[in-house]
């Protein structure tokens, strides 16, 4: 790096390094953002959850959607792995099953962006304490 010679340089540099920090800034206020939780237990990983998670992280960034992508443990729907739980601000969390990268793309485009429900929702019919 040749140094920061003007304020514009500094702003450019800030943009450059910002993405490295965005995860930390977003963590301050996760309720106000789209939260994507990918089930990453053995069953999930074996069915490709890692690729799906990676896809979400990359694509949400590219499509400029402010979101927090986290991993969780097994959600219990091992028959439908990889499973992903999505909570939009102010809405109940919804779990999607059999999520591959194509499904992920559909979820981003239709559910996250437009709020439309798409196929593959696993109804949540249990209670937790």
């Amino acid at each position: 790096m040749d140094g920061i010679k003007t304020l514009a340089d500094l702003k450019k540099k800030q943009e450059e390094v910002m993405s490295r920090m965005s995860l930390r800034d977003r963590a301050e206020n996760p309720e106000s953002l789209v939260q994507v939780k990918v089930a990453m237990a053995t069953c999930g990983i074996a069915s490709g959850a890692k690729e799906v998670m990676e896809y979400f992280i990359e694509e949400l960034y590219k499509r400029k959607i402010d979101a927090v992508v986290t991993q969780t443990g097994c959600m219990g729907y091992c028959f439908a792995e990889p499973t992903v739980e999505i909570s939009l601000p102010g809405r109940e969390a919804i779990v999607f099953g059999y999520v591959d990268t194509r499904k992920a793309d559909e979820i981003i485009e239709r559910y996250i962006k437009e709020g439309e429900l798409v196929d593959g929702i696993i109804p949540q019919n249990y209670n937790t304490i």
Partner: peptide
């Protein structure tokens, strides 16, 4: 320093 810059370091000086 990059992490500081991401958090607005030296922006006030620039301003």
């Amino acid at each position: 320093i990059d992490e500081s810059i991401a958090r607005d370091a030296y922006q006030a000086l620039g301003k």
